[in-house]
Design a protein around this nucleic acid. Sequence first.
DNA 1: ACTATATCCTGTATGC
DNA 2: TGCATACAGGATATAG
Length: 280
Amino acid sequence: MPELPEVEVVRAGLVPVVQGRTIVGVQVLHPRSVRRHAGGPDDFVATLPGRTFGEPRRRGKFLWLPFTDGDALVAHLGMSGQFRVDAADAPLLLHTRVRLDFTDGEPQLRFIDQRMFGGLWLSPGGAEVPSDLAHVAPDLLEPDLDLVGLADSVRRHRSGIKRVLLDQKVVSGIGNIYADEALWRARVHFDTPADGMSRARVLRVLAAAREVMAEALAQGGTSFDALYVNVNGSSGYFSRALSVYGREGLPCPRCGTPIRRVAFANRSSHFCPRCQRRRA
DNA sequence: ACTATATCCTGTATGC
DNA sequence: TGCATACAGGATATAG
């Protein structure tokens, strides 16, 4: 499940693969992988050739690959999206959805997506910041982030803290894994109302989220299976450093109490019932 | 305006 | 063995 660290690994991997290269041909193998594109898959195929990529960028879990003409190719990996670099005549992996060929030949860029929650589209004029991403809040690894302002914006919400952390309009890049990990590090119960938390406590949660995502990034991201890999097909190593996510019944690394998993918003929350008590 | 839920997807794991 | 069900979950449309 690609969250901020995994998407950043992909972005960095794309830089040497696409920057300065010009598209010559596009093949869409599954129409649903072209999303939000105004003219649909046919127009997507027709409009890309001749465009030259600049340096790939990211906000939260969204990627955009600017073109030198001012437009941008926007990408979201969803649950299982991958960019892979391969020889044009290499056999297609199962679930390959889109192929891009370049004027200079090898290698080819491929978009692969098993569960198809991800997708690609062209954003006219989107090279600087695509208009479709205007609602996406800053993420915790942005250099000029106003952390106190962000904490206060979190505290304006009445929902439980985890719901707020997952709301990409409030703070972007955090998904289910790093939300659970950050809350464990900060010793906060996931359902604590955000508007009842002190500024300092929210700041501790945000600092923990930033810390755990930075550590994961340094490890190449979190891989459980073949659904998240970098552009070369390699896995990240952070899954072995997770403290609560996917560890139901295993001892809390801090106090030894068995980790609990409970249903939460169509997914799961993992937490230590002793370290992360719900406050009155 | 704000909050919560259903929906889209497919492969893997589990239960009967 | 085989069939049915649960689960993984990011973003968004829709319902409340």
